[in-house]
């Protein structure tokens, strides 16, 4: 049993990003998880934070199909024409 006070909700929320990327010191991580064990509001906050990150990625990954495709022919031609033009300038 250690005598370190548990985190407040404010502190826990401040530490979420470090918690998710694994950079919290072990003692703080332990306090963080102990707080989650007794605070449903912070569990919900963390859950919503994680889901928002996933939703943001998913929403913009719609555009990733293009990564697998060639650029439209009209765009390829426009880029190459602009390059030739800039060479002449």
């Amino acid at each position: 049993m250690n005598d370190r006070p548990n985190l407040s909700c404010r502190e826990l929320i401040d530490f979420i990003a470090d918690y998710l990327d694994g950079s919290l010191p072990p003692q703080v991580r332990s306090d963080f998880e102990r707080h989650l064990g007794v605070c449903p509001s912070c569990v919900s906050y963390l859950d919503g934070y994680r889901k928002s990150m996933m939703l943001g990625k998913a929403a913009l990954r719609d555009y990733d199909d293009a990564r697998l495709e060639s650029a439209p022919e009209s765009l390829v031609r426009a880029v190459l024409a602009a390059r030739r033009q800039s060479d002449k300038a």
């Binding site: 407040s8 909700c9 404010r10 502190e11 929320i13 449903p40 509001s41 912070c42 569990v43 919900s44 906050y45 859950d47 919503g48 889901k51």
Partner: peptide, 16 residues
């Protein structure tokens, strides 16, 4: 989020 003086959330988060 907003917090009370004791560090609790002013408006507790609800489950998603």
């Amino acid at each position: 989020p907003e917090f009370l003086e004791d560090g609790h959330q002013r408006n507790p988060s609800r489950p998603w």
